[in-house]
């Protein structure tokens, strides 16, 4: 430690203060780059212009409708993907023969980029919300399925055999042995699925033109409303951060009893 550093008050090193300073620094840099003429302001408008455009957007009805469209597609996509992924995962995972049979197919289908389905979605649903949903569900489903499969494979054999020797019914074993073990993995899957679903929802809107924030970004780009475009991109980023925080928060609260979370909090 140098004497200079020791002279700083302790709160200057606090993570929250440093984080806020970092964000403020970013805003300042974006303000200065175009103002000083280092970057063409038709390419990157200064922070003040982006914030003004953001305020404008927040005042229009169209923005809120688009936000709602995006969130509805996102929520349905996550819901369907989680439901299907958990059911399929439990069914496949708890029957060893099924797991062996499907392993190669899952390994093959999972890495197929979901954007490959864009042309198909366009042909099937045009620019309706259905094409967004198709892409969102496809991408999010694999995240959940794979996590549930890991979770089921993680079941303690002693617990499983104990349950068997106490003659638990098949249902009771799923309910009291399999499900609690798999639950943390399910939550990881939900968290991953939630962020992938947002990416795909906005991508679909951007490329296909189904209603939502992504379409608004494409429209802003086409009409050369650059500050509006940046404002909408900031909105999607904030949305992503919020969804991430929400998923983490929900995980910690609903899984508060579980070893993996308890251990994390203590450490």
């Amino acid at each position: 430690m140098t004497p200079v550093r020791r002279g700083n008050p302790a709160w200057l090193g606090h993570p929250a203060i440093l984080g806020v300073a970092g964000l403020a620094g970013l805003l300042l840099v974006i303000q200065l780059l175009p103002t000083l003429g280092l970057v063409n302001d038709r390419h990157l408008p200064p922070t003040s212009a982006i914030l003004a455009a953001l305020a404008d957007e927040l005042g229009t009805g169209q923005f809120w409708i688009s936000l709602k469209d995006t969130l509805v597609a996102w929520a349905w996509g996550v819901l369907i993907a989680v439901g299907a992924g958990v059911l399929a995962g439990l069914a496949i995972g708890s029957v060893p023969v099924l797991r062996e049979l499907t392993a190669s197919t899952v390994e093959f289908l999972r890495p197929i980029p979901s954007v490959a389905l864009i042309p198909l979605a366009v042909l099937l649903y045009g620019t309706e919300i259905g094409s967004t949903l198709l892409l969102v569900c496809y991408a999010a489903f694999w995240q959940v399925l794979v996590q549930v499969l890991y979770g089921v494979a993680d079941v303690d054999p002693v617990a499983e055999e104990t349950a068997r020797s106490y003659r638990f019914s098949a249902w009771a074993r799923v309910r009291y042995v399999l499900w609690p073990t798999a639950l943390p993995y399910v939550f990881t899957g939900v968290r991953l699925a939630a962020s992938v679903a947002l990416i795909l929802a906005i991508t679909a809107e951007l490329v296909i033109g189904s209603p939502g924030l992504g379409k608004d970004i494409a429209v802003a780009q086409a009409s050369e409303a650059v500050p509006t475009m940046y404002a909408l991109i900031v909105v999607t980023g904030v949305l992503g951060v919020l969804i991430n925080l929400l998923a983490r928060f929900g995980e910690r609260h609903l899984l508060g009893w579980h070893q993996s979370v308890r251990g994390e909090v203590i450490a």
């Binding site: 440093l18 951007l206 980023g237």
Partner: peptide
Amino acid sequence: RFTVEPVLELFRAVPPPV
């Protein structure tokens, strides 16, 4: 790390295709 972490989280949360 503490200074740039929120900025990086924001950048990561932006859907890459936009």
